[in-house]
Design a protein around this nucleic acid. Sequence first.
DNA 1: CGCCCTGTTGAAGGGAATCAACTCCGGTGG
DNA 2: CCACCGGAGTTGATTCCCTTCAACAGGGCG
Lengths: 224, 224
Amino acid sequence: MNINTNTTVSRHFSSEVDRARLDMSDVECSGQRQTLAKGQDLFAEGAPANFFYRILYGSVGSSKLLSDARRQIDSFHLAGEIFGYECGEVHGVTATTLEDTKVVVFPRSCFRDLMQGDPALAEQLVSAMSANLQRARDLMLLLARKTPQEKLAMFLLDLAARLKNTKRITLPMYRADIADHLGLTKETVSRTMTQMARDGLIGLEAIGRTVRLIDPVRLRELNS
Amino acid sequence: MNINTNTTVSRHFSSEVDRARLDMSDVECSGQRQTLAKGQDLFAEGAPANFFYRILYGSVGSSKLLSDARRQIDSFHLAGEIFGYECGEVHGVTATTLEDTKVVVFPRSCFRDLMQGDPALAEQLVSAMSANLQRARDLMLLLARKTPQEKLAMFLLDLAARLKNTKRITLPMYRADIADHLGLTKETVSRTMTQMARDGLIGLEAIGRTVRLIDPVRLRELNS
DNA sequence: CGCCCTGTTGAAGGGAATCAACTCCGGTGG
DNA sequence: CCACCGGAGTTGATTCCCTTCAACAGGGCG
């Protein structure tokens, strides 16, 4: 197990309509910048949820831990995405940077004020959370019922879409992080990826940190 | 695999403050009653999300299916709980009754109107959805990393709390449904439960449909 | 009574976890 | 400049737990 973890709350916060509104909040709330080295925590599970964040560059993971070292990384967050929004008083996950990362920090009150003053925004927020829930459900199905190969196919396709590069992606996280996201071990992740490379589905470069998606069609067929 | 599935969207909708507001909406929107036999669908994955529901009696499960028979039941819904709220245009899950069930049906517009007119309610709604997300995250950790015994301990304790009976609960769903909720097979569910009975954790009655929680303390210890 | 469905139990097999060794690279310091 | 070192990734061998396949038991209901 290693220290890196992830933040999932809002893989979808950054999508579609919301983006514009939340960028606006950037201005209105005059968010502070914060730069973090690789492996640092933005917040821990159980800590007061006073802020939420948007990533300028870098990447973040949100995770939950069991008393022993077992870990589940709920989601990864990439540049441009917003995360850390918790309606409860405390965070439900721990957010850790996967690499050197810079974020904009928004006070929680900022969001609340916007919602009160703008019912349309509130509905959008609900919509974004609904999308998150949808995503969580998909991940549950994946964790409970999919094979390692199916899990990795979905993971790589999702990452590629979010990185806006459908051909070649550079993974910002370790094999162990991917394993803890998909409910596998790092060995199984490694073995499955090399097997997928042998099958001509993907290509591995740069010590396995860069992945070429050679056959997206067949990769996509591995999803339902 | 059997036909029964579950609906998860809002295991928490019915909790705390929201209950009062949503009961109010019951009156304002004059929801229609609907009675369903065991095994009937309230709505299917991909169908337009025009209504949401509150259970008067009975129980419902919401599930997702893969092209082959693999299934994930996102959650079970019991009497008094509200579910089926989807902000998207279509439902993300299929909702099926686990037994003869009676529900109140609310048109989606009802919710929308209430939200527009009442920012406080909107915030409560967001809060409820956040709770759902929290719950989904806990389930992901369970699915990815917990042992069958830990899964069943958590499941039984959760069900007992929601049925407001911490001593003896009657399961409204099949072993196969529990299995598809916890990412196991029905055989493993059965075996694990009989083992837990042998260990003095629980007691099984009425052909295994009634469970006595003999040692809640030790059961709770099985969670993190 | 007999069928069907649910649950239980048994035996066998498979697939991922575990344990372990090795490679490769990058950084550090001699 | 190179030897050493540590971390990440890969690969191999073994183990074990859950799944799979199969048979049986017990009720409910026609």
